[in-house]
Each structure stands twice: as C-alpha cells, then as structure tokens.
Computed example of a mutant assay.
Amino acid sequence: MQRLIIMRHAQAEKSAPGGDIDRPLSKHGRHDARAMGRALAERGLRPDTALVSSARRTHQTWDEVSEAMGDVEVHLSPALYNASSDVLRRAVEAAEDTAGCLLLVAHNPGVHQLAVEYLIESAASPGVMDKMSGGFPTGAAAIFTVDVAGRPTYEGWLTPQDLEK
C-alpha cells in the first residue's frame, strides 16, 4: 500500500427506527460525501480498495463518494461499525498487501484515534497535530503516504467545510 485515506462517514440523521446502525445520511451529508468524492478524485486520490463499515450511513457515504472513483474493490464489514482504533488498524494492516490506495470509511471516535496514532508514530509536526486536535468532523478525510515498511506519514487533511471556501 502506498496511500491510506481515513474517512469519517458524512453527516447522518439524528435517529432511525432501526436504531443507530440504520441511521441514513442527511441531505447535507449526501451533498458533502459527493463533494468529498470529487475533491479526492481531482487530487488523484482514487482508491483501488475501500473498507466500509456496514452501518447505513457509512455505506451511503461510500455510495456518494464512489461516484467519482471508478472501479474500486469494496469490502463492507460489520466489524468496522463503531470500531476502536485497534480494530480499524488491524483491518488496514490486513489489506495493505492487496491495495495500492486504501480508503477506510468508518466512525468516530475510532477514525480520529487511528489518525492521531499514525500522526504520533510518524512524529508529525505540532501544526499537523493541532489540525487533528479539533476532532474529526463528519465527511472529513485524513490522507497518509505509506512507506515500504508500512508506516503511514501525514500527507493531507480535507473536510467538507474546506470545499465550501
């Protein structure tokens, strides 16, 4: 794997009859997810593999993002639903030999914790750490370059709010 994109699902509705796992994206969330897909693709960040939580909002986020991505191998996983950073890391590591660019679409706090762990491990600058200290908003993506030893290094940060500016 040469690149890793860690993305939080886009904004979801507050509730759903089937409970948290069934919460759909809001209209705003669908718009943000489509915009993030276009923005990632325009920057040459097109995954060949996507690991996506099986929750409705993450699956819908992927559906909107994928419109700009072309052919991507997608793996929906119940294990990624509200997963800890350790579970997310193991999923990333399991896919690292088969993906050139991997996109992980999951939930907070796991995605935020995983991104911060990678920043700490790669000795990211204080300015980069500050960017991530404010949290991981819905629809945001942290982008990492991965070296030959499998160590992610911070490459960029993109949020739907950045695209509105």
Rank of each mutant, 00 (worst) to 15 (best):
Q60L: 13
R30Y: 10
A10G: 11
A91S: 13
G156P: 02
L104I: 02
R90F: 08
M7H: 06
M69L: 13
R38P: 01
D86H: 15
S84Y: 05
S15F: 11
Q2S: 14
Y118G: 06
L76C: 06
P24T: 04
A94T: 07
D20F: 03
H28W: 07
T159L: 04
N108M: 10
L103F: 01
R151L: 15
R8I: 05
L76R: 15
M7I: 10
L158A: 01
I143G: 08
L102Y: 09
E164Y: 04
E155V: 05
A12W: 03
A94K: 15
S15R: 15
L114R: 05
H107M: 07
G29K: 05
E117W: 14
L25R: 08
E121P: 01
T61H: 03
Y154S: 05
D32S: 07
H28P: 04
A35C: 09
G110Y: 00
I6P: 04
L158I: 14
R57H: 10
S26I: 04
H75Q: 13
G18T: 12
V52F: 07
A142N: 06
D130L: 04
W62N: 02
S54K: 00
R34Y: 03
F144V: 01
I5Q: 08
G135Y: 00
G134Y: 07
M132L: 14
Q161A: 15
A55Q: 04
L45R: 02
S125F: 09
G134F: 12
L51F: 03
R8Y: 03
S133D: 12
I5C: 04
L158D: 07
Y154R: 01
G127C: 11
L45F: 07
V87R: 05
D97E: 15
V148T: 15
S85N: 13
S85Y: 13
K131T: 15
D97F: 03
H9V: 02
A91T: 03
R46C: 13
G127Y: 12
A55W: 12
A95V: 07
R3E: 01
D147W: 11
Y81C: 05
P24I: 08
H107F: 00
D20G: 06
V65E: 11
S15P: 04
D147L: 10
D86S: 14
K14L: 15
E117S: 14
A55N: 04
D86M: 13
V111G: 00
A50I: 09
E121D: 09
V146L: 10
L51M: 03
V87T: 15
A33I: 00
S84W: 03
L40K: 00
G19A: 09
L40E: 00
E164N: 12
F144L: 05
V128I: 10
G127W: 10
D48N: 13
G37D: 05
P126H: 05
H75S: 14
A115N: 15
S77P: 01
S125D: 14
A79F: 08
S125R: 06
N82C: 14
E64V: 04
A142S: 09
F136A: 02
A12K: 12
V52I: 10
I120K: 13
D22L: 13
N108A: 05
A68F: 01
R56S: 10
L4C: 02
M129S: 11
L80Y: 01
A16M: 02
G150L: 04
